[in-house]
């Protein structure tokens, strides 16, 4: 953060010859501060793993073996041999598609319900206790009932994502709405904003930091839930890929899949966080 601002601040000032050198220097400094430390630690951990698992009788493969076992999967993520035998990119995209549906529905329903509960004391009294109980139900516990209801695996998985992600969105949105300062409401009343104008111009921007923290928790939970749900429903998807690999003792494939799951989860979190930063200051041109 501070590095980027210093670039922005310095570049125009020190205009002529050393500009590119300054730029290279700050790039190098960023690398040294943010990329190098995790890289070093990662190397260290992989080395320990290698040492532990190359001993005779080790239950898990060492990283070198994981790499050689899964090389085919790594270099060709987009193969398609029909059925479940498709590349890892397809597996992950299938999971992401389910998450996208379930999460988007959760965002729409969650923000709406959150606004309702935040605005109305009666809705709060009636709904909040129910939400507080339902949100403690583990994601997978919803799966049998949704399979029974939908009679189909794909909508059931989407429903599990939806029901997992919606609670933090509802709760954070309603807290955000309830915390809108009285002064903002008074400003809206003095200039006589109507309900719709109030919603778009005051309520959403004022509550958006809270809403986005709910959205961020929600996307993380969705990704946690999809892997577990897919293990049970089967078909294409990273969750079932892991389960399938376990059943055919391809431990290296599992490890590779875990790395992908972690990276994708991290990216999802970052995307929502980035969108949140954009939106919470997004109403301003600059």
């Amino acid at each position: 953060m501070s590095d980027t601002t210093s670039i922005a601040g310095l570049a125009p000032a020190s205009a002529a010859p050393p500009a590119w050198r300054m730029h290279a220097l700050t790039l190098y400094r960023r690398f040294a501060q943010h990329v190098l430390p995790p890289l070093v630690v990662l190397m260290l951990l992989v080395t320990i793993w290698e040492l532990l698992c190359t001993r005779p009788g080790a239950a898990l493969p060492p990283p070198s073996q994981v790499l050689s076992d899964t090389w085919e999967l790594i270099i060709d993520p987009f193969f398609d041999n029909g059925g479940n035998d498709v590349g890892l990119a397809w597996q992950i995209l299938a999971s992401l598609e389910r998450v996208a549906y379930g999460y988007l529905l959760a965002v729409i329903a969650g923000v709406s319900l959150g606004v309702l509960v935040g605005q109305s004391t009666w809705a709060l009294r009636g709904l909040d206790p129910i939400f507080q109980v339902l949100r403690t139900v583990p994601p997978l516990a919803w799966l049998p009932i949704s399979l029974a209801g939908f009679q189909d695996s794909n909508p059931s998985a989407i429903f599990v994502i939806f029901i997992t992600a919606i609670w933090p969105i509802i709760i954070n949105t309603s807290v955000g709405i309830r915390n809108i300062p009285e002064d903002y409401r008074n400003v809206a009343r003095v200039i006589r904003l109507n309900g719709i104008e109030y919603f778009w111009k005051i309520m959403l921007p004022a509550a958006s930091p809270y809403i986005f923290s709910g959205l961020r928790i929600g996307v993380g939970l969705s990704w946690l839930a999809i892997v577990a749900a897919e293990m049970l429903i089967g078909g294409v998807g990273i969750g079932f890929f892991i389960w399938d690999a376990w059943n055919s003792s391809r431990i290296s494939d599992i490890i590779l899949a875990l790395v992908y799951v972690g990276v994708v989860g991290f990216l999802l979190d970052r995307i929502v966080a980035w969108a949140g930063r954009r939106v919470t200051r997004g109403t301003t041109p600059a």
Partner: peptide, 17 residues
Amino acid sequence: PGPDRALVFQNHSLLPW
């Protein structure tokens, strides 16, 4: 309330976004 009676609040109450 209405704009014919404009109010200046003690703590300015500008919208921060």
